[in-house]
Design a protein around this nucleic acid. Structure first.
Lengths: 335, 335
DNA sequence: TTGTAAGCGTTATCAC
DNA sequence: GTGATAACGCTTACAA
C-alpha cells in the first residue's frame, strides 16, 4: 500500500542508497539524481517509515513524560512547555500517568516494558520515595528527574529549591503580621522529598521569627488537589484559637482553602491570609487573587528537555543538577 | 548491550521461534521449554524491543492525541481520561499541540511526516475549518474527530450537541429572569463549527422567549482563555444598559468574566449572572461557583479510544457518529 | 511442538 | 557519487 524506499528507487531507476541519501539530506548527491528521486517521491507520495528508521538508528524521536496526573494545572502547564521545547528539538512527547501508584512508578522507571520505544524519559513524580534505588543509570534509558531538590545524585536533575521557596512563602505571611500560621501538605505516612523540604522551610521561617510550629496547625494532604485543601482548611478553622494564615504546599490546595474559608463565613485575607506554591493561572483570576511562589516552568521544561537531548547524544555525561529560579508573588490573598 | 531474542535463544539452547512463542504468550509450548526460556529471559534481563515488533506487525501501540493546548483544563481533563482509557486497551498516548495554527493542524492531520509512528489519531481541535477536506480517510491512518457536532461524515466522530448545550445554558439564564443576555465566544473572523453552533443555540433560546439578540452584547473571543473572558466582559459592562447575564462559550472564559464583573465593582450573580460550558473542576471551587453545562468527558474519552481501537483492527468500518451526553449544572453564579 | 529462514523498511558498510 | 548488501530485532510461513 504505502510506498517504500525501494519503490521509489525502482521508479527513479536508482539504488535505494541514493534515495536514502536524498531523503535524509546527505550532501554528496548529484543534482540530476536528486531531481529524479524527488520526482519519484512526489509521484508515489512516499513518506519515510520512522519505525524502520528507528530499528536501524536506535532513535525513535520520542520522549516520555511521566507525571502523576496530567489534569493537575501545574503538570499540564509543564507538559505544554515540555512538548513545545521537545518539538523545537525534533522530538515528540508521550505522556504517562502514575496516578499515585508506587508500583506503576517503578514500572515506568523500568521503561514500562517498552523501553526502546522512546529515547529518553522525563520523570516528574509528585512524590518519589526510593523507587529510584533499583534503577541503574548505566542500563536504563536516559532519565531526567524533575522537581525535587535532593535525592539521587546519580541522575540529572532539574530542581526547585523547595526549602527556600517554602521559607519565602512563610516569611511573607510573618511579614504581614500573621502569627498563627497553619500549613497544609505534609504527607500522612510517606516520607517524600517535596513535602519534607517544604515543611523544613516552613519551620525554619517560623523559627527565625521566634515562633514554635503548632502541631495542630500542620495538616496533612494525601494529594495536592482542591478537595484536599478544602477539607484540611475546614478542619483547621475549627481549632481555637484558629489560624490567621495558611501556607499551602500547592496552589491547588490553596484554591480549596480559599473556598473553605469563605464557606466558614470568614474572609481572605482579613481573617485568614492564604499563600500557595506553583503560580498556576487560575490563581491570577481567583477572588481574591492568590499570593504564591512562582516556579519557572519554562526554565524547567527547556532545561530538562535540552539536557535530555544532550544525554541521548552522549549517555556518558556525568549527572548534573540544575536549580530553577523561583519568585514570591504577593497578591490579594495575603492582603 | 541490551539482550535480544537471539541471545535468549542461544542461552536457553532453543530456537528464536520458541522464545518468540513464549514471549508473545503462544499456547503450544511445552512446559520444559517454557521454563528454560523464562529462566534465560530472567538471567539476561531481556526486554522485547517494541520497535522491531512494530516493523513486523505494523502496530506501534501508540495513539496520537492532538489538542490546541494541553494546559487548557478541558483538554487536560480529556487527556487524562484518554490516556487512562488507552492504557486499559494496551495503548500509550503521545500528545501534540496545534497552538492555534492552521498549518500545523493540517500537517498533523497528514501524520506530521511520521505517519507510521502511531496506530491512530484522536483529533480534538478547538476550531477546525476545512483542514479535513484534503484528508482521504482511506489513505490516512485511523482518525477519530472529537468535539464538533457536524462537519465531515467521512470520519468517526464523538460529538457534543453544541446547539442544544448552548440553548440549555441560555434558557437557564432566561428562566432566572434575565433579559439582557450577552454572549462571549464567537470567532472574530473564522467560521468554526463549535462557536457557530453555540451561537445558534444561544439565539434560538432568545428567540423562544421572544427576545432579539443585541449585536452589541455578542462579544468575540479569539481564544477561549481567562484573559479573553476578562477583556470581553470588561468591554460588555461598558454598554448601556449593561447586560444582566453573560453566557460564556467556555468555563475558562467564564472564570475571566467573573473576575471582570467584580473588578468593575459589580456582583455575580446579583448584578450579572454568568454561565459557562465544560464543567472544569475550577468552577466548582470558584467564588461564586460556576453554573455550567457539563460535558461527559469520560464518555467522550472512552468512546473515542475504543472506537479508534476498533478502527485500527478493522480500517474498513463505516464512519459513525457518537453524541456525548451533557447536563446543565446550576450553581451560585446564576443565583 | 520446534527449527529454519524470509522478510518488515531503513541506514550503513563496503566496494567500485 | 553510486550501487549491492548486510544488518537492526522481531514475527511467521513453511518444514521437520
Amino acid at each position: 500500500m504505502a510506498a517504500t524506499l525501494r519503490d521509489v528507487a525502482d521508479r527513479a531507476q536508482v539504488s535505494v542508497r541514493t534515495v536514502s541519501n536524498v531523503v535524509s539530506g546527505y550532501e554528496h548527491v548529484s543534482d540530476k539524481m536528486r531531481q529524479r528521486v524527488l520526482r519519484a517521491i512526489e509521484e508515489l507520495g512516499y513518506i519515510p517509515n520512522p519505525v524502520a528508521r528507528t530499528l536501524r538508528t536506535g532513535k525513535t524521536g520520542l520522549l516520555s513524560l511521566v507525571v502523576p496526573e496530567i489534569d493537575v494545572p501545574y503538570f499540564s502547564q509543564l507538559a505544554r512547555e515540555v512538548i513545545d521545547a521537545a518539538a523545537d528539538l525534533g522530538f515528540q512527547v508521550m505522556i504517562d500517568q502514575t496516578g499515585h501508584d508506587h508500583e506503576r512508578e517503578r514500572q515506568l522507571l523500568r521503561g514500562g516494558g517498552r523501553r526502546n520505544l522512546f529515547d529518553g524519559m522525563l520523570f516528574a513524580p509528585l512524590a518519589t520515595g526510593d523507587e529510584l534505588r533499583d534503577v541503574d543509570p548505566a542500563r536504563s534509558s536516559p532519565l531526567i528527574l524533575l522537581g525535587e531538590h535532593v535525592f539521587d545524585r546519580r541522575f540529572d536533575h532539574v530542581a526547585i529549591d523547595n526549602v527556600v521557596a517554602a521559607h519565602d512563602a512563610t516569611t511573607h505571611l510573618l511579614d504581614r503580621g500573621r502569627t498563627r500560621i497553619a500549613a497544609i501538605g505534609a504527607q500522612p505516612k510517606e516520607r517524600y522529598a517535596t513535602p519534607l523540604q517544604r515543611t523544613e522551610g516552613f519551620r525554619k521561617a517560623l523559627d527565625e521569627h521566634g515562633l514554635e510550629p503548632v502541631n495542630a496547625l500542620q495538616a496533612t494532604a494525601a494529594h495536592y488537589g482542591r478537595a484536599d485543601g478544602y477539607a484540611a482548611t475546614a478542619s483547621l478553622l475549627r481549632e481555637s484559637p484558629r489560624p490567621d494564615a495558611v501556607f499551602c504546599y500547592s496552589d491547588l490546595l490553596a484554591m480549596g482553602a480559599i473556598r473553605a474559608v469563605f464557606d466558614a463565613g470568614l474572609r481572605v485575607p482579613e481573617d485568614v491570609a492564604i499563600i500557595g506554591i506553583d503560580d498556576i493561572e487560575e490563581g491570577r483570576y481567583s477572588r481574591p487573587s492568590l499570593s504564591t511562589v512562582s516556579l519557572d516552568t519554562p526554565f524547567i521544561a527547556r532545561t530538562a528537555v535540552s539536557r535530555l537531548a544532550a544525554r541521548i547524544e552522549d549517555p556518558g555525561l556525568p549527572a548534573e543538577e540544575f536549580v530553577a529560579p523561583h519568585k514570591l508573588l504577593a497578591r490579594e490573598s495575603t492582603g
